[in-house]
Design a protein around this nucleic acid. Structure first.
Lengths: 229, 229
DNA sequence: CCAAAAGTGTTCACGGTACACCCATGC
DNA sequence: GCATGGGTGTACCGTGAACACTTTTGG
């Protein structure tokens, strides 16, 4: 079956830059392409938009198909439409970025992908298409947005220590933060729920666990409150 | 001539939310559609992306064709891809917003459009498609971005008074600003060039003119400087 | 000389930053 | 008991906010 139109149309795809925090590193999820063009090359997960799904649904479907990720934080980044960005034909791609907690979201290679894996964002191999450019745009967006929107929590487990949260900001902002000032500031914001639970397993004093309270955040937001880290 | 593909493809369009400052008001440029669907309805200027142009080029071309605007500040906003957003068939639209100085950019209706006109952003008629949603997203973006990026100058003439600049921020942020504090702050930023020229024609004391110094701004930006209003 | 907007400084409160030590736990 | 990271408070400085009068011009 084929489809015929009066005017030529670009193909429409989605691509996803998926970020995760692993130990001390900010990592990006890549798949190794199984088919031409760029067979064998690493690339962002993505694929064609179907006619009966929104573009966001297409992004989620491709993530699930290629990497088995589900229910991640996903936000539209930018649409890339250079004429020659795909060597086969004109392809316009709506890029998204996703944030996942690598503990709660294990990843495995699926259809279309030979392999899938996490790479330190500073040690990414040559990528297919213009995916390097997409990745850079996603990193810029993430680093800018994390300072005034509570998206960093998406990279952490549901319950986390203040040390983990501080470390996350240090990795994203690429500068050290003062422990006492960070704690004061973030607790004063008023949307962290202090739990009666403590970290386990380390050879040291266990740290208290906190949880991001979305409803409290939304309430504060409505009152015109703004934060900045 | 027709074009045939193995898989169905959405049509791809661009739509532009063009903002201008007119007197005391923030206005949006609309065209009145000459053809179905929504013939006679007001809409954002826009149209189909051609195969040999980038999506940004498509946005600029449509603006020129429908409203005769050229060389405006243009930035990608968001891509709208709801399945039923166009009653004819599946159409995905890359939305852009533009900022123009209404004095230096007169507007007139061109091809496809019966008419073109400026509307106060709080008095916009029913719009075609999902253009109301696009306009709201553009307004949010503009109001957010103007606070920490020097895009407001795009709405003013090249030479402007501090009064005009303050007024611009008051209109965009929808709150009054203190004259003395505003002047102190904005002059201290260091990227306004104080001219030896003065306003003309008013029945009052003429105000000094200033100019936004882009190269000075870029230099400050490189040093890690950030502003916030 | 009158109306209208231009232009200008100081005080105060708050938040950001710098900075060092004791405490609790596991081994 | 010792190593490791958890947890805490204070002093200073710079920025943001509040606030009112004099000056200049055109008519």
């Amino acid at each position: 079956m084929t489809f015929t139109y009066e005017y030529a149309r670009p193909a429409l795809t989605v691509d996803c830059a998926v970020f995760g925090l692993r130990g001390d590193d900010l990592e990006i999820l890549l798949i190794q392409r199984g088919q031409d063009p760029y067979a064998g090359r690493w690339a962002l997960p993505g694929g064609f938009v179907e006619m009966d799904e929104t573009i966001e649904a297409a992004a989620r479907r491709e993530l699930a198909e290629e990497t088995s990720l589900q229910e991640v934080y996903l936000e539209q980044l930018y649409t890339f439409g250079a004429v020659e960005r795909d060597p086969r034909e004109r392809v316009v791609s709506v890029a998204w970025y996703a944030l996942v907690n690598t503990d709660e979201h294990p990843v495995r290679a699926q259809t279309d992908a030979q392999d899938a894996g996490w790479f330190h964002v500073d040690a990414v191999p040559d990528l297919a298409f213009d995916h390097r450019q997409i990745l850079d745009a996603a990193l810029d967006r993430l680093r800018g947005k994390v300072r005034y929107q509570p998206i960093g929590f998406e990279l952490l487990p549901e319950k986390f220590t203040l040390r983990q949260l501080q470390h996350l900001y240090e990795v994203l902002l690429q500068r050290p933060l003062d422990k006492r000032n960070f704690r004061k500031k973030v607790l004063k914001l008023g949307f962290l729920e202090e739990l009666e639970e403590w970290e386990r397993g380390g050879a040291r004093r266990p740290a208290r666990l906190y949880r991001f309270d979305r409803s409290k955040y939304r309430a504060l937001e409505k009152e015109g409150f703004e934060f900045q880290i």
